[in-house]
């Protein structure tokens, strides 16, 4: 299997990602670019967590947006209505999601293949319906405002300027730095998990669950564990997303959003942490890129998604790597 990348290789990949994130502010032209980049980083971190479940453990979730939404709504509701500060609110959301995932994980993960997808889909839609219907708490379909993120009384708003060590930095830049940092932490945790004994057990589950069970891997426990971890990833990032965007609606819990998240994983390259980041980036950029097509926008979106998956079924990054590897292998022979 190709997961046998050396420690060294994975460190180089990690450094490359960090370099890209540091370099981006020098390429981006205006605050709108920063705005999109920040959101990409937050969603990418969510998808890195989802990929642990889908890409490595091979369990397809069609309801992950629900966990993202629970995190986001916990932050929104607890800070604006119950006087919580953002970090405890975020923590409360994450704990709530972890407990929910733990309770539901066992019966859901007993299911196989499409039945698992079906159950996660059902769960996601039920949560979306509750958020939509309980307007007294959630603001209903018209959404709810979220106060800006604040840490120890210091508010971080994209609209403010901040004096830090003699430099004036915009809130937009600071939010980008925070989001980029979150993405790096998310990747670092995910990579460590993948290289740990748990990760090896998970890959065994993906390869063949029966075989894994025969050699003594407690498959259900590992699957439940990774389900909880990926749900918590989604919840925490949902909280950050809510504070960043300042206003959320039940759409973030919708089936459609769940589909978007899973599409990012598959588009970028399942089981490739850096691939799914690319997937998230491209899928979030695509609507912005297609605005010139106007009436053809939806058609183009579908067409590009379809063609990419037909011609690169392994996802973007793994396909590029494959081409690169082939090119490298061939080049010494052609050299004189």
């Amino acid at each position: 299997m190709r997961h046998m990348h050396s420690r060294w290789g994975s460190q180089i990949s990690f450094l490359s990602l960090a370099l890209v994130l540091v370099a981006l502010p020098f390429v981006m032209q205006n605050d709108f670019h920063f705005d999109i980049a920040t959101q990409i980083a937050i969603i990418a971190a969510t998808v890195v967590g989802l990929n642990l479940l889908v890409g490595f453990a091979g369990q397809v979730s069609l309801g992950h947006a629900a966990f993202f939404a629970i995190g986001a709504y916990s932050s929104a509701i607890l800070t604006s209505r119950y006087g919580f500060t953002p970090l405890p609110a975020m923590l409360a959301g994450a704990v709530g999601v972890a407990v929910l995932a733990l309770i539901l994980g066992k019966p859901i993960l007993r299911l196989k293949g499409h039945y698992l997808s079906m159950a996660t889909l059902g769960l996601g839609i039920i949560i979306a319906i509750i958020i939509n219907n309980e307007g007294w708490l959630t603001g209903g379909p018209d959404g709810i405002p979220v106060p800006p993120l604040s840490v120890f009384g210091m508010e971080l708003s994209i609209f403010e300027q901040y004096e830090i060590a003699g430099y004036t930095l915009s809130g937009t830049l600071l939010w980008y730095i925070l989001a980029a940092g979150l993405l790096l932490v998310a990747v670092w945790i995910a990579q460590n998990l993948i290289d740990s004994p748990i990760g090896r057990a998970l890959r065994a589950v993906h390869g063949s669950e029966v075989a894994a069970r025969v050699v003594g891997v407690d498959t259900t426990r590992y699957k439940a564990l990774v389900f909880v971890i990926s749900a918590v990833y989604a919840s925490v990032m949902g909280s950050f997303f809510a504070h960043y965007s300042g206003f959320i609606t039940p759409q973030i819990a919708s089936f459609q959003h769940s589909i978007e998240l899973i599409t990012m994983v598959v588009l970028g390259g399942m089981a490739s942490t850096y691939g799914v980041i690319l997937g998230a980036a491209l899928l979030l950029l695509l609507p912005q890129l297609l605005t010139d097509f106007q009436d053809y926008e939806m058609m183009m979106f579908g067409l590009i998604l379809m063609l990419t998956m037909i011609f690169m079924p392994k996802g973007l990054l793994p396909t590029f790597q494959q081409i690169l590897r082939r090119a490298l292998r061939r080049s010494p022979k052609t050299d004189p």
């Binding site: 399942m270 979106f301 590009i304």
Partner: peptide
């Protein structure tokens, strides 16, 4: 199989568009 599912989702968006 999941890739095929995403292809059908792409197809459905395309047809709707």
């Amino acid at each position: 199989v999941i890739t095929l599912i995403i292809i059908t989702i792409g197809a459905s968006i395309f047809l709707r568009g």
